[in-house]
Computed example of a mutant assay.
Amino acid sequence: MAVFVALGAFLMTLFGGWTAQRVTDRRHLVLGLAGGLMLGVVGLDLLPEALEAAGHEVFGVPQALLLFVGGFLVAHMVERLLAVGRAAHGARDQKTPEVGLTAAAAMVGHSLMDGVAIGAAFQVGDRMGVTVALAVIAHDFADGFNTYTLTSLYGNTRAKALAMLFADACAPVVGAASTLLFTLPVELLGSYLGFFGGALLYLAAAEILPEAHHPHPARSTLFCTAAGAGFIWLVTGLAE
Rank of each mutant, 00 (worst) to 15 (best):
I232M: 10
L47C: 01
G16V: 07
A117E: 04
T151E: 02
D140S: 10
R27I: 14
G35Y: 09
S220H: 08
A88K: 14
Q21K: 15
I208C: 09
V136Y: 02
V136K: 00
A167G: 07
G71N: 06
A161G: 15
R86G: 05
C224R: 03
S111C: 09
M107I: 15
M113Q: 01
P215G: 05
L51C: 11
V136Q: 00
V136F: 00
G190H: 12
A177P: 07
D140H: 14
A159M: 06
E52T: 05
A2Y: 04
E79S: 15
L222F: 00
A9R: 06
A159W: 08
T96I: 03
F15M: 07
I232C: 08
P172T: 07
L200S: 14
L44K: 00
E240W: 02
F166C: 10
V130E: 12
L181K: 03
V5I: 07
G109Q: 03
Q21P: 04
D25M: 04
E52V: 01
D25L: 06
T96Q: 05
P217C: 06
V186T: 13
A135V: 10
V41R: 05
D45R: 15
L29Y: 14
R27D: 11
M38L: 10
L180S: 12
F231C: 14
A169Q: 09
V5R: 00
M38R: 04
L180E: 08
Y192K: 13
A212T: 10
V42F: 05
L73I: 15
Q63T: 14
T221L: 04
T157A: 06
G70I: 00
E240V: 04
T183I: 13
A104T: 05
Y154A: 12
A53H: 00
F141W: 14
G60S: 11
R92K: 13
G100M: 05
F166E: 00
T131Y: 03
T183W: 08
L44N: 05
N156G: 12
L46D: 07
G43W: 09
L189C: 02
L150N: 07
M38K: 04
G40W: 01
G40V: 00
L150K: 11
Y202W: 06
T102R: 08
A9I: 08
A138D: 05
M1C: 11
S220P: 04
G194Q: 01
G197D: 09
A50L: 11
A138L: 01
G155K: 04
G32N: 10
V99A: 10
V69R: 04
E207S: 02
T183R: 14
F72N: 07
E211V: 05
T183N: 13
V116P: 02
Q63R: 15
L73C: 11
H56R: 11
L200I: 10
A87G: 06
L200N: 13
V174G: 03
V5N: 00
A135S: 14
G155S: 05
P215W: 08
